[in-house]
Design a protein around this nucleic acid. Structure first.
Lengths: 347, 347
DNA sequence: GCTTAGCACTCGTTGCCCATGAGTGCTAAT
DNA sequence: ATTAGCACTCATGGGCAACGAGTGCTAAGC
């Protein structure tokens, strides 16, 4: 039996009105208010009957006997799946977002300000993962001697993305040697992305090391060191945590602490966000659906963002289950698209 | 009249015991407990007399008629200035800190983990400003062609500090040209810090540009572009904000929100930290002394850290006025020294 | 003259009772 | 099927008394 068949039209409408109302002011909604709000010309008593059914079927519950009703997770779930009419973002807003994105030059700043935008627009906490660069094509590699036994490796991916890594060597290398090594590696690795580079190093280039070319063996060994360095582990940026303090239901210092610690800890939230990489659009976790206890009273709305049709990261917002899904969903959605667009190589 | 002359030995001792006690459990201290804790073999009544004096002179106050006494800002101030016996950090701890510092390679990570260490050791919020690099000596400059009209400039300051900047050129340069330009600039600029470099570019090297050497004029022009780029504005890293939620006196969601917003906003706190650059040691702001309303119920303990005897940044902790100054001060102090040491070029 | 025992007093905290009112479920009438 | 009516529930908040921690003051003691 599907939720739709469980509920007749009227019940669905009342559920929608109830959620709208509850989202708006956070108080359990009573039959009188609901009757008035619904514009259905029903008496409170009738509404009560409907509510009894909704409670029976688990879409709402009452905190105690003489309070109104509040939506359950199941209620919200049905709401977002079937009842929701998202309000597309005003094009003025879209323009403003796009303008903001153009300002930032480096990755960290860009991601930070996207996170800020999300939290500012939704008045919730915004999260944005740093884009995975596993599939950015390497364009060039260069070595610079730093000291006796340290060499700076410079990886050029694109005009706006250059990474530095420091490696240790057993002996000093002359500038000329390093130059040749760099040229050799660039020649063999350019155009490949990081995973391909690693594969290359493990397979084909081992030959170099073992047989053919003595000198270039050094180059390969250095490259191994360069590319074994964890390509900066996964990470995300949060913004607007303090927005969450405005919500009555989270206004308990203990809950807040756990939540904030989870934000700092990052592990759990990263894990959750990771799951959203696969999804190809907005994804919503309501309350316990996320599977993480700290998020029991929160909902998470996420969307992956892509460069060249390849998902490289996830962004979203975290807030109380009682959030304005109809506003939040399009915001998350379009922000993801815009970020993707901003990251696309455009020159 | 100095505070010392206002208070006899016994009164001072009682104030110290009172503060120790209050810092420990956050409850107003009554005459009975104080008499017991003081080990002075005094009756509560006597203690009460002393307390009346201390209240008169403004070192303590009572929240209401029938509560014990709590220290005032003036009380704390006298305590840290005259009564305090700091407990030097265990050398085990020092070793642990030093070890931790060795692990981090890049600046951002380093500063982050120092902030973490501060907050972990003190159970307060830790703050560390990013070091100003205005006076880091440039060791070498290198150019790499990126595209038609973009060149990557690499500034090597030390083994762990390398900066990338992208500049735009009117025409394409060959690798050889860039090489020569880089060599020329390195030769003339190595050993100078950023401010000196800028001065050089404005004065002496203008000659090059105008007269002597056509080709090297390009180099100077590029250098101008490189060094005019803002050396990333001031910033700091916070850690352990959530620690502040453990304190009864801050456990009000509203206060917390203001505090956390100040942390995010950064402006005010940066401003405060800036003042500490001049001081040459641990500096303490108790309660309203800081002059910022958000910090009214907080104390800030800071110390500047230096590279080559030159102050480049500030670190510290922020917590409730009721903090264990005797523990916190040495922690902040030695952490600052260790950070300085870790940043010192050591090869 | 400093110390201290004694005592009346203050005042925040806790628990209890009760009135209030919002909201319910059920029943019977429409 | 809807609704008016009614008894019932229960969170909330005010009022009130008991309690206890702590005080200031006074008068006695060393």
């Amino acid at each position: 039996m599907t939720a739709e068949s469980e509920l007749n039209e009227r019940a669905q409408h009342l559920l929608k009105v109830l959620i709208d109302r509850y989202v708006h002011d956070g108080e359990p909604v009573g039959s009188r208010t609901l009757a008035r709000d619904s514009r259905l010309d029903l008496s409170p008593a009738t509404v009560r009957n409907v509510m009894a059914d909704l409670e029976e079927t688990g879409f709402v519950r009452s905190p105690h006997t003489s309070a109104g009703r509040v939506p359950t997770v199941k209620g919200y779930r049905f709401f977002v799946d079937s009842l929701l009419t998202v309000k597309p973002l005003e094009s003025v807003e879209v323009g403003r977002l796009r303008a903001q994105l153009d300002l930032d030059v480096n990755m960290k700043e860009l991601v930070g300000s996207v996170s800020n935008m999300l939290s500012g627009l939704t008045r919730l906490a915004g999260v944005v993962t740093l884009p995975r660069r596993d599939h950015a094509a390497l364009r060039r590699i260069e070595f610079l001697p730093l000291s006796e036994n340290r060499v700076l490796a410079i990886l050029v991916f694109s005009e706006r993305e250059v990474q530095n890594r420091i490696i240790h060597t057993e002996r000093a290398y002359s500038q000329a040697e390093l130059q040749r090594a760099a040229n050799y590696l660039t020649e063999h690795l350019a155009g490949k992305d990081l995973t391909e580079v690693r594969r290359s190093l493990i397979h084909e280039m081992q030959e170099t090391r073992e047989t053919v070319n003595r000198i270039m063996a050094h180059a390969v060994r250095m490259a191994e060191q360069v590319f074994s360095q964890t390509t900066e582990e996964e990470d995300y940026v949060v913004a607007g945590q303090t927005n969450l303090m405005d919500f009555r239901e989270l206004c308990d210092v203990d809950k807040l602490r756990h939540l904030f610690e989870a934000f700092n800890e990052k592990r759990e939230i990263l894990h959750l966000l990771d799951q959203c990489v696969k999804a190809q659009g907005v994804q919503i976790f309501i309350g316990e659906e996320s599977g993480y206890q700290v998020l029991d009273e929160c909902s998470v709305v996420t969307a992956p963002y892509a460069v060249d049709d390849r998902v490289v990261g996830v962004l979203g917002v975290i807030g109380p289950t009682r959030m304005a899904y109809d506003r939040v969903i399009p915001i998350v959605d379009t922000t993801a698209r815009l970020l993707g667009a901003a990251l696309n190589p455009r020159d």
